[in-house]
């Protein structure tokens, strides 16, 4: 369609205007969270748009050993889940993506079905299993439980990725009698960088953010992860609600994720769409 120069300019201005509206809608709550976290004491109750740059709330929350402990717990859980779920998924994806065998399709379907299970449906059975394994109130319970939403997804995405690679790349190695483990390590692993980054990031984000299991399988403060710690911060009354501290804690938890989202945007988006559109 042919448009006049003024028409094109108006069109551009309209689109940038809408960009600004979307960005404001998306980002203002973050701005307000950070600004509130930087106001000290009673100042948080005055609505001023510019922050004071006082770090009292951060000092308070970081001198509280329990919060630092829960940050460390979240880090341990998320990192372990990433390592474990990727390790298991790489092996499974090699089997499903590169080998034709009877039972392949039913197993793919099984993984897809499991990834759709509502977490609540497993709660009482999982509770029993975790107690039986001796993992109740340990970080191990969460690392174990989080396999349910990371493993099927990782297997699915990595299988799609492996299947998209050309048939020939491993044929010579098979004929030379290389062991499958060697084939995966020496041929596939070097090619899988982007897919591993995508699935790893998504597994990290999902584990870092999970709430229901973390609330249920952990009993004591020193074993909690950050989402539960933040959800359980409360004041002695409704009017003494420590919003300054909550906003500071929320900012600390959110910053690594925002940095990740900005740096690895492409990988996260490609992982999400690979999981949903193709598989």
């Amino acid at each position: 369609m042919v448009r006049s120069a003024t028409g094109r300019r108006l069109h551009r201005i309209a689109i940038y205007g809408l960009f600004a509206v979307v960005a404001l809608y998306t980002l203002f709550p973050f701005y307000w969270m950070i600004a509130s976290s930087l106001k000290s004491g009673q100042a948080i109750f005055d609505v001023t748009f510019l922050p004071d740059l006082k770090f009292n709330n951060y000092e308070a929350i970081l001198s509280d050993g329990v919060f630092l402990r829960s940050l460390l717990n979240s880090l341990i859980v998320a990192a372990s889940v990433v390592a474990l779920s990727l390790g298991l998924a790489i092996a499974a994806a090699y089997a499903l993506g590169r080998i034709d065998f009877r039972g392949r399709s039913p197993i793919m379907f099984l993984f897809l079905a499991v990834s759709m299970f509502p977490q609540i449906a497993l709660l009482s059975g999982l509770f029993e299993m975790i107690r039986w394994l001796g993992l109740y109130n340990t970080l191990g319970s969460l690392i174990f439980a989080y396999m349910i939403f990371t493993l099927p997804f990782n297997i699915w995405v990595l299988t799609t990725f492996m299947r998209s690679l050309p048939r020939q790349i491993e044929e010579a190695a098979i004929m030379d009698g290389c062991s499958p483990l060697r084939i995966v390590r020496c041929i596939f692993l070097p090619m899988m960088g982007p897919a591993l980054i995508s699935t790893g990031l998504l597994a990290f984000i999902a584990s870092w953010n999970e709430f229901l299991f973390a609330l249920t399988f952990i009993l004591t403060d020193e074993n909690r992860t950050v989402p539960v710690a933040i959800a359980l911060i409360s004041g002695s009354s409704r009017y003494e609600f420590p919003y300054g501290a909550i906003m500071a804690a929320s900012t600390i938890v959110t910053v690594p994720l925002i940095v990740m989202a900005l740096l690895f945007q492409k990988y996260i988006v490609s992982g999400l769409t690979a999981g949903a559109v193709k598989g």
């Binding site: 909550i246 938890v253 925002i258 945007q265």
Partner: peptide, 15 residues
Amino acid sequence: ILIPWSIPVVVSARM
């Protein structure tokens, strides 16, 4: 646009 999705729901709720 990715940011609200990637942070914990608990944090969004508190915010």
